[in-house]
């Protein structure tokens, strides 16, 4: 059958459903294994953060789309969290293989890592359902929920999301072409404009790399 916008959106949604049908709403046994291997066990903080961000997401979604759709926002968030845990597990497995490390305490206790991973998962869910919403216009929308809405409501810097996208795509081989194209589009928006806004962490990274280069250029003191 010819691919219409609605059909393309539906197949992406179905693909997302297939991916997440077997995913968990809470950390899997594998994830708990990694959490328990950490010097500082991040489990409680991770679960608490997901709860708190859930409240923020649902409130902002209802504000944007209409109070009558609060439950839809709740469902979207739930799907996003499943994808978040699923990709986290896959990321840790590949890092374990690549680095032969089992203790991911620093990474798993890094707030920015978790918020950017969750934001990436939620952006994908929003984009997948958003296209269908556009196609059906069934919901009253006060605010455009397309990117960068999700990083604004989660109070995440654009470049922080940028840092996770490639690893996210690598870690989740079942993403459809549309999903990957969408995330790539987000990357372009970030590098073309959002990453260059005031207070972006990109400026600090550029400064650090310049400092490193500067040190490399300075002649070594004689006592070396």
């Amino acid at each position: 059958l010819p691919q219409t916008p609605v059909r393309a959106a539906m197949s992406t949604i179905q693909q997302l459903m297939i991916i997440l049908n077997s995913a968990n709403d809470t950390p899997s046994d594998n994830l708990l294994f990694y959490f328990n291997n950490c010097t500082v066990n991040p489990h409680e903080v991770i679960v608490k953060r997901i709860e708190n961000m859930g409240i923020t997401f649902k409130n902002k979604f209802a504000e944007a789309v209409g109070q009558g759709c609060a439950e839809i926002g709740s469902q979207r968030y739930k799907i996003g969290v499943r994808l978040y845990y699923r990709v986290m597990e896959s990321l840790l497995k590949s890092e374990e293989k690549r680095l032969s490390v089992h203790n991911f305490s620093k990474l798993l206790n890094n707030d920015i890592f978790h918020i950017s991973l969750l934001a990436c998962a939620l952006e994908l869910v929003m984009a997948t359902y958003g296209t269908s919403r556009n196609a059906s216009q069934s919901m009253k929308v006060e605010t455009d929920l397309s990117f960068p809405w999700i990083i604004n409501i989660l109070d995440l810097k654009a470049f922080e999301l940028y840092m996770i996208v490639e690893s996210f795509i690598k870690a989740e081989p079942s993403l459809t072409r549309e999903m990957i194209k969408h995330l790539e589009g987000c990357e372009h928006k970030i590098m073309e404009s959002l990453a260059w806004q005031q207070n972006s962490p990109l400026f600090e990274l550029i400064k650090q790399s310049k400092d490193r280069e500067g040190q490399a250029d300075e002649p070594e003191p004689a006592n070396y």
């Binding site: 990321l91 590949s94 890092e95 690549r98 680095l99 490390v101 991911f104 620093k106 990474l107 890094n110 920015i112 890592f113 840092m163 996770i164 490639e166 690893s167 795509i169 690598k170 081989p173 993403l175 072409r177 990957i180 194209k181 790539e184």
Partner: peptide, 21 residues
């Protein structure tokens, strides 16, 4: 994923990106 332009270099992964190596 063949359309996506992977840019991370060899030996660069999520741990390095988030300064947790």
């Amino acid at each position: 994923t063949q359309d996506y332009h992977f840019g991370l270099e060899e030996g660069e992964g999520i741990s390095e990106l988030f300064d947790c190596d």
